[in-house]
Amino acid sequence: MYNWDFLPVLSESGLLLAGFRNTLILTATALTGGLAVGLLLALARLSHRRLLSLPAGIVIEVFRTTPPLVQLFWFYFGLPIILSVEMTPFLAAALTFTIQSGAFFAEIFRAGIVSIEKGQWEAARVIGMTHSQLMRRIILPQAVKRMFPSMMERSIELMKTTTLVATVSYADLLYEANELAQKTFRPLEVYTVVALIYFISITFISFLAARLEGRFARSGEMTR
C-alpha cells in the first residue's frame, strides 16, 4: 500500500499559490478580452454587410474548430516570425485565449441576440430608435440575461483551458505543479492536490453562477 505524504507539497504551497494567482490573472485577462471580442464578432457576424460578416464568420469558425493547443503554439512560436516581435508566454496565451473564447462567446451573443422576438425589434424601431440604440437599450439587455448560463459555462471552460499555457512555460498552477512534482518526487500528491484546487474553485464558481441565475429567473422582468 502506498504511503501518502502531503508534507513536501504543503511546505511548498507558496509555489502552487503563485501558480494559482497566475492562472486567475490569465483567466481574467482572457475573459475580459474574450467578452469584448465576442460581442464585436457577433455584431459583425450579424451585420448585413458581407465585408463585416464574412471575416467575422471565418474567425469564429476557425477558432472554434481548431484545437486550442495548436492555436497557442501558432501564436507563441509562429506569430513572432511574421511580426518579428518577441512573444512572451503570457502575451501568447492572453492573445490565443482572448480570440478563442471570443469566438465561442460570439456564438453565445449571436444566439442570444437572435433569440429576442421580432416584435421587440419592431417596437423599438417604430418609436424611431436607430439600430445602435435599439441594440444597446432593448436587445442586448434582454439577450444578456438569457445568455448568462452559457456565458458562465464558457468562462469555466476558459479557466480549464488556461492549463495549456503550462506547455509554453507560463508559470500557471499546472506549470508549478510540474515543477513541484519533479522537485519533490511526489507526483501523486502534487497532481492530486492540483486537481482538487481546480475542482474546488470551479465547483465554487458554478455554485455562485447557479445562485445568480436563480435570482435572475425570480426577478419578474425575465418573463413576458
Binding site: Y2, K160, A166, L174, P187, Y191, A195
Partner: peptide, 21 residues
C-alpha cells in the same frame, strides 16, 4: 469531478500519479 477539473490535469494525473497507486 471530471467536469470541474481540466483535462490536462487529468491526463497528467493518470500518467504520473496513477502508476504509483
Amino acid at each position: 469531478f471530471f467536469r470541474n477539473t481540466p483535462v490536462l490535469v487529468q491526463i497528467l494525473w493518470f500518467y504520473y500519479a496513477l502508476p504509483i497507486l
